[in-house]
Computed example of a mutant assay.
Amino acid sequence: MSTPAPPLIFSPARRLAVRRRALALQARPGAARYLIADMAEDLLERLAFLRHEPKRVLLIGMAPADLLASLSARGAEVTQVEPATGFAEEQPFPGRGFDLIASFGTLDTVNDLPGALIHIRNALAPGGLAIASFVGAGSLPALRAAMLAADGDRPAPRLHPTVDVRAGGQLLQRAGWADPVVDSRPLAVRFSSLKSLLADLRTQGLTNVLSQSGPILTRKQYSIVNEQFGTGTVERFEILTLSGWRR
């Protein structure tokens, strides 16, 4: 009996376009990189705490260059892949036997998240460690509130559904990760305007890739969102991190 296909929550074509645009924007001087930078710093701290010294590493997503340099300096053979250039997270990985697989900000927009987690586990060597970080539940509360105010009595799907700590734990157990750990941490960022926030979301690949998104904001609705969001607003990102081993 065949397994039913997962629901198509996210559009693969829109996801590809958004990530390609983000890659291009990341090449510009001064591009917003604070989310990936935070995830990379957290990864190095976890490796130090766990005293895990991987020899073969797979990095998925827009990992910063200084992370690659740091891992290489420790003697690791590092491979970096990116969904925007053809790496398929929802298919069996072409490589196996990695001591560390780290995913940065990509798993929040895959349709088959349990399957992607299983593929990560299967690509690990025995004793290998997997760490996946992405924007989770509780993120962008100010923008969500402003969008709801603009939509009024008929809210439209404009922002992605997100995974929380409890759901993350259930997903790891289902995927067979050993000694699973799930945690969430906030990252607060002050924005001078709504325009500044939207620019950062585009640069970091966080704009809408829903397969059935809501209608485009009218000028009146955009004006409401802009007014509700205000100036000098501190927006919050919740970074969810899933970690576990292959025994």
Rank of each mutant, 00 (worst) to 15 (best):
Q80K: 12
W177I: 05
G176K: 03
L198K: 07
F10Y: 14
R247T: 14
R185S: 15
E238I: 05
G205F: 02
L159E: 04
A13L: 13
R21V: 02
A13H: 03
V189G: 07
D66P: 13
P92I: 08
R247K: 13
E45K: 14
L47I: 11
V57M: 06
L35N: 05
L217D: 12
P155I: 00
D200N: 13
A27K: 14
F10C: 11
Q26R: 15
H52M: 04
I60G: 00
T241W: 09
P4L: 07
P186A: 10
D183F: 15
Q221I: 03
A130K: 05
E238A: 09
P12S: 01
R219Y: 08
L143K: 03
G86L: 00
P4M: 09
A27M: 12
G176L: 07
I101T: 02
R51S: 14
F191W: 13
A150R: 05
P186S: 06
D200G: 10
R19H: 15
D179P: 03
L47F: 08
L59P: 01
R185G: 12
K55D: 01
M39Q: 12
D112Q: 08
P83D: 00
R19L: 15
V81P: 04
Q212M: 07
G169F: 04
A88I: 09
Y222A: 14
L68N: 08
T218Y: 08
Y222S: 12
R158C: 10
L113R: 09
L50W: 14
P157N: 08
L35K: 02
H52T: 02
K195P: 00
A102H: 01
R246W: 01
S11R: 01
P83G: 01
E235A: 10
A116F: 04
R33L: 11
Q173Y: 10
D38H: 15
D151H: 08
P180V: 09
G86H: 06
A13P: 05
D99Q: 02
L140R: 01
A24S: 14
S223P: 03
R74N: 09
I224T: 15
A146Y: 04
W245C: 04
F191T: 07
A63H: 13
H52I: 04
M147E: 07
K220I: 10
L198D: 06
L187A: 10
V181P: 02
P126F: 10
P155W: 01
L47S: 00
L25W: 08
A76G: 02
G244W: 03
G136C: 07
I118W: 01
M1F: 14
P7C: 14
G214C: 07
V234S: 14
L143R: 02
L206Y: 07
R21D: 11
R28N: 10
L100F: 00
L240N: 05
G105Q: 12
E89C: 13
G232E: 11
I131T: 01
L68Q: 14
A24L: 09
E77Y: 12
V135M: 11
Q170Y: 12
S213E: 10
V209D: 04
D66W: 14
I118G: 03
L171N: 02
L107Y: 06
G105P: 00
Q80L: 13
A132P: 02
